[in-house]
Nucleic acid binder design. Structure first.
Length: 159
DNA sequence: GCCAACGTTGGC
DNA sequence: GCCAACGTTGGC
C-alpha cells in the first residue's frame, strides 16, 4: 500500500504534542470542515505518517511525527453539548463528522518553525501549508516534501 | 442557484 | 487586535 504523508494542525492550547505523548494514542477529533472530512474518509489510510503542527500560537511549527492507526469513524464529540466540538445540527442518525486515531512517534528536539519552512519556499512551493489562504487543518505532504522537511532538522547551524 | 452577510482560521 | 482568505448560512 502506498505510503502517504500529512500535516495536521492543532492549537497547542487545546491539544498539544505533549498531550498526545501523555495519551500515546488519541482520537483526532473536532474536524468540522467537509474538505478535511473527505480527506479522512477517502484518502487517509492506516499506517500513514503525519507531521504534528502547532498553530495559532507564539511559534507556529512542526513539532513531531505521528502515525494514523485507524480508518475514519464517526466523531461523537459533535453530539456532546459540553464539548468544544459540539455541533447542534448533528444527531446520532445524522453525524457527518469523522475522526481517526493517531499515535505519537516522535517529538522533535527542535521544532521546525513556519519561519524556517518559509525560508525554503522554492523547494516547498507545493506544500499547502505555505500557500496563500490555506486554512485546512489537515493537508497532504508530498513524499519529496516530507523528506525535505525532515532534512531541515539537521541543518541548524551550531555556533 | 445567486450572493451578501456573517463566522472562522491563523499568521502577524 | 487586525485582517486576508476562505467556508457557511439564509433570503430571495
Amino acid at each position: 500500500m502506498e505510503q502517504r504523508y500529512w500535516l495536521m494542525k492543532s492549537e497547542p492550547s487545546v491539544f498539544s504534542i505533549d498531550d498526545l505523548i501523555r495519551l500515546g494514542t488519541a482520537p483526532w477529533e473536532g474536524i468540522r470542515n467537509y474538505q478535511v472530512r473527505n480527506l479522512l474518509r477517502d484518502h487517509m489510510q492506516i499506517g500513514d505518517l503525519a507531521f504534528f503542527y502547532h498553530s495559532s500560537c507564539k511559534e507556529p511549527a512542526i513539532v513531531g511525527i505521528m502515525e494514523i492507526t485507524s480508518s475514519a469513524y464517526p466523531d461523537s464529540s459533535a453530539l456532546l453539548p459540553n464539548s468544544l466540538y459540539y455541533d447542534p445540527k448533528c444527531t446520532a442518525d445524522k453525524l457527518p463528522w469523522l475522526q481517526v486515531d493517531v499515535r505519537i512517534m516522535e517529538k522533535f528536539d527542535t521544532p521546525i518553525t513556519l519561519a524556517t519552512l518559509r525560508n525554503h519556499t522554492e523547494a516547498l512551493a507545493q506544500l499547502p501549508l505555505l500557500k496563500r489562504g490555506n486554512r485546512l487543518s489537515i493537508t497532504p505532504v508530498a513524499p519529496f516534501a516530507w523528506d525535505y522537511i525532515l532534512g531541515l532538522r539537521s541543518s541548524a547551524v551550531v555556533i
